[in-house]
Design a protein around this nucleic acid. Structure first.
Lengths: 344, 344
DNA sequence: TACCGTCGCTAATGCGTATTATCGGATGGT
DNA sequence: ACCATCCGATAATACGCATTAGCGACGGTA
């Protein structure tokens, strides 16, 4: 069933059918209400739907948003990271009347999917949302110079990349301030083995937080591989009153190590997690932590992307770079350090 | 960047570029290796990718599989149902080199998405996978008569509908046999308020299981709305030794009701759940239950769909209707009834 | 030399839609 | 009576690709 067939049935030209379908009422291409109704009636009767491929080829938008994830989106290991984002994306896409094209066909190299490959279907979508803890800078650059409409989730320092991210700098800084106010003076910051923007932001916020407090000591330690017991040794050696964990993955294991070593939390040691626990509700301990508004991130990315697609003129950089506030979860693993409590 | 541009750069015709790209080596359309290499070199240098819309319009497949869910796929309430299915679908799609088009734009009527609507993008995909506990028979029929390639997940009794489902009949029957062997003679079957194929199959299996055992009593009871306490009264009145729950949603609540009434499980009452618990690992009780192989279902649907798309001649009905075996989880809520234990 | 088959490639065409240019007729003003 | 507008609709075209028919060159055979 094509427009031509509809046209035959209604006794008009294919052009007229197209004009009716798209509600074109310009000076060029005016259709009498009578004719319009007749065509619409035929369309209803035949349940005709325009071929999206042809529509796309002829230059129209097609209300399809691409979604690219650097890893598989649904498996259990990553479900807690991707699912809330996808929930937000799906919800917003539904509101905007968009379908979602998930680029699952991307070949996997070194455990990561490759955006650009033979027969990639990027051009099918009006634009694309990129998800992943870390992204390939080269990919981003190529998308930018290609003039492709896209939005990254998470802050990206690559020039010209539109994104919706989380303001980890302010949030982390604020957490450090709280710890300082409670009396903490020895800070241990445990880094995950990554140099993605989101962790760099946490580190920057941490530095800003402790800056200027001469009597506060702090140290950084990077977890490489799975040597968490090594990390614990370093922690004991430093003797902090509060522990900042960059990776939520370390939280449960470290809590166990602390318990084995006879440390109570937060009695002997406060723990602050700069991210969400792997499965909310699974761990028994309610960590004091930051919680990224993931559904809002996903929905925000869709809104930004559709704005980019719709607007023909350039959008000012300030609007292309969105930072959302992080939620703070009070939890139960942050308290005043022991000497402070004794003093009280 | 189009094939025409590539052709200019390589000093050949657009036809040649197309032939090279698609590796056509028929009698008509033979390209010298030398020419082929030259074209390939230009393609590599320009990172050209064929426009999928044009390719589709020209009659080719485009390696895109549609995914339709009757409800939003990602929200928390349904995540445990859809996510494993999507995991399987994604994994299989990745293997087959297919992208997934999620039809999120479908308008929602009465809480359910409508497949057919103005500007639906069904035709974009080579075929489509349908997900949902219950499906609209009219939709299915329309897809069948339209000659559209699709696969439903879950058994469907509508004629001509290809599906990958679960053999709930055999599995449920087998569970009844186990209960009988343990000595159970009074069966209470709690129905959810649904007449979908999958619950009908469970009921059929249950009936088959108890059939022929004259000394075994059983009764059915349908939970309407949220009257679970009413259901519990009915259960007490009947005095069963074993309870079959059609809906996993009732399991935790019923366990609580039983505890409040002083019944121990499985001491005074065995409970068998004919489905997966809402969140594996969340509930403390490990129910004796059936577990649908959801990832296999998803992957199986993708495989069947790609087979349907690829094959030009009709596929025999037997291959279009696939039933997978259900996993049995022993759990800890099924034991011999009290009188039997006393006798032992 | 005439004929035929094969090789290597290209011109032409169609897919279904959106858009532009154009066209015949009606209407109105001078 | 004539020109200018406006109205309602259509023919023609482009989008980028895949496919079919066919063309010129070349070599072998009769």
């Amino acid at each position: 069933m094509t427009q031509r067939r509809i046209a035959e049935l209604a006794g008009v030209s294919q052009t007229t059918v197209s004009l009716v379908l798209n509600n074109r009422v310009n000076a060029t291409g005016r259709i009498a209400k009578e004719t319009r109704d007749r065509v619409m009636e035929v369309i209803r009767a035949t349940t005709y739907v325009a071929d999206p491929a042809a529509r796309r080829l002829a230059g129209g938008e097609n209300q399809i948003l691409g979604v690219f994830t650097y890893e598989a989106a649904f498996p259990h290991e990553t479900v807690d990271f991707y699912t809330p984002l996808l929930t937000g994306i799906e919800s917003a896409a539904e509101t905007m009347g968009c379908d979602l094209l998930m680029f699952t066909s991307a070949p996997v190299v070194n455990g990561r999917r490759q955006i650009f490959h033979q027969n990639n279907r990027l051009a099918f979508a009006d634009g694309c949302i990129l998800l992943g803890l870390e992204m390939d800078t080269e990919d981003l650059r190529r998308l930018v110079v290609g003039g492709y409409s896209f939005v990254a989730i998470g802050r990206r320092s690559t020039p010209g990349v539109p994104y919706v991210g989380v303001d980890y700098v302010s949030s982390t800084k604020e957490l450090v301030r709280r710890a300082l106010q409670l009396g903490h003076r020895r800070f241990f910051y445990l880094e995950r083995d990554s140099r993605g923007e989101s962790v760099l932001d946490r580190r920057a916020g941490f530095r800003e937080g402790v800056a200027g407090f001469r009597n506060a000591q702090h140290t950084f330690y990077t977890v490489s591989g799975k040597g968490l017991s090594e990390a614990w040794k370093a922690i004991i050696a430093f003797g902090p009153t509060v522990l900042f964990l960059e990776s939520e993955d370390h939280s449960a294991a470290l809590l166990k190590l602390a318990a084995e070593a006879g440390y109570s939390v937060p009695g002997d040691l406060s723990i602050i997690v700069l991210g969400d626990p792997p499965r909310s509700g699974t761990t028994d301990i309610d960590f004091t932590r930051l919680s990224a508004p993931r559904e809002d991130l996903g929905a925000g990315a869709v809104k930004l992307l559709t704005k980019i697609i719709a607007s023909k003129e350039r959008i000012p950089d300030s609007e292309l770079r969105v930072l959302l506030n992080c939620r703070f979860v009070p939890g139960s693993t942050l308290a005043a350090p022991k000497n402070e409590r004794a003093a009280q």
